[in-house]
């Protein structure tokens, strides 16, 4: 019930903002602009999908930015320092990122740390590891060498859907970046996992009430570790797309990006109180934020005002979430009163 109303609200808000910018922002409703939007925000949407899993469990993952940097550096080192071909480097990178996430989960489950603390300490630790293994510092001349591996650079491909389908004779369509399709694939895979499998049900149950879940025979610890591992995996995927787009990486890659991911998830209706929300919301939330940033830039509004508005949108989203929760509680109370 609440999932739907929060999701519908964000979709409506998304459409309203889209319509507003199409009408008022010059050059917003152009093919190249939508191409930028898709290329620039698909990987953040993937991070938001990943971040939704810890949040669904009433947790949080502050380390996604650091995990992303670590994964990016692993791919950089493997391809440039050790000349490992991309089809080997990509799985290794994803495995490292998944492991980072699993370590977060293990710290939370085995050491009983609060998610905020566990991922705060791994935020520092993973960022430290990035500096430690940085190929840019170990082999100085590499810092100016762009990535050239065809497999990794191939992630930064664009498809001319318009010409392929013949639609471009009617209307100019944006070239769709591969990262957008990867994002959609991630959404579908994890969305099915969350909505159609036992593991997905376990996530909602544990997020709703961990003790009840344990008593119902759900392996709570395993569920938590897998959820954080998925978040790590998504950060790894985001890292690959990002370094392909930049054709290099830096030690400070993804600094502060966890905040965008968390904001997108919350705007997309994933409740911080756990157990409520889906994955399509966070994706729409990401593109909503992206659209606002790009739209305001085209309107010539200062980048600083954009930061302010991003904060305001976040407040509106969480305020709306709260409003729905209060209304639901009142209805419940009214129903109970009627029955009595």
């Amino acid at each position: 019930m609440r999932v739907q109303s929060a999701f519908i609200a964000v979709v409506l808000f998304f459409l309203a903002v889209l319509a507003f910018f199409c009408v008022f922002a010059p050059n917003f409703a152009t093919a190249s602009n939508f191409e930028d939007l898709m290329a620039g925000f698909s990987f953040i949407a993937i991070l938001a999908i990943g971040e939704s899993f810890p949040i669904l469990l009433r947790g949080i993952d502050l380390s996604v930015g650091a995990t992303l940097a670590l994964a990016g550096m692993v791919a950089f080192d493997l391809t440039l320092m050790f000349d490992v071909p991309g089809y080997v480097a990509i799985p290794i990178t994803l495995a490292v990122a998944t492991l980072c996430g699993a370590v977060n989960g293990a710290l939370i489950v085995k050491l009983r740390l609060q998610p905020f603390i566990a991922t705060l300490s791994t935020l520092a630790a993973y960022r430290g590891l990035v500096y430690a293994i940085s190929g840019r510092q170990l082999v100085p001349e590499l810092s100016t060498t762009p990535l050239s591996d065809p497999w990794i650079m191939g992630l930064d491909t664009y498809f001319d859907i318009g010409s392929a389908t013949g639609l471009s004779s009617l209307i100019e369509l944006p070239w769709v970046p591969l990262s957008f399709f990867i994002m959609i694939a991630t959404l579908v895979v994890f969305g099915v996992m969350l909505g159609r499998t036992r593991f997905g049900r376990d996530i909602y149950t544990v997020g709703g009430n961990a003790e009840a879940a344990r008593l119902a025979g759900i392996n709570v610890g395993r569920t938590i570790i897998i959820a954080y591992a998925i978040c790590g995996f998504c950060a790894g995927l985001g890292a690959l797309l990002m370094i392909a787009r930049l054709s290099t990486t830096t030690e400070s890659l993804g600094m502060g990006m966890e905040m965008s991911a968390i904001a997108a998830a919350v705007i997309g209706g994933v409740s911080l109180s756990g157990g409520i929300g889906g994955l399509a919301g966070p994706v729409i939330g990401t593109f909503l934020l992206g659209m606002v940033l790009i739209g305001l830039t085209l309107l010539g509004i200062s980048q600083f005002v954009q930061q302010i508005l991003t904060g305001v949108i976040l407040l509106i989203a969480v305020g709306h979430d709260r409003f729905l929760a209060v209304r639901r509680q009142k209805r419940l109370a009214a129903n109970l009163a009627e029955e009595a």
Binding site: L107, L111, L113, A124, Y126, R127
Partner: peptide, 18 residues
């Protein structure tokens, strides 16, 4: 070095609270 400092900081926070 800074990398070891960051790693140590993370490990110490996690360990102390555990």
């Amino acid at each position: 070095s800074i990398d070891i400092q960051l790693i140590a900081k993370g490990a110490i926070i996690a360990l102390a609270l555990a």
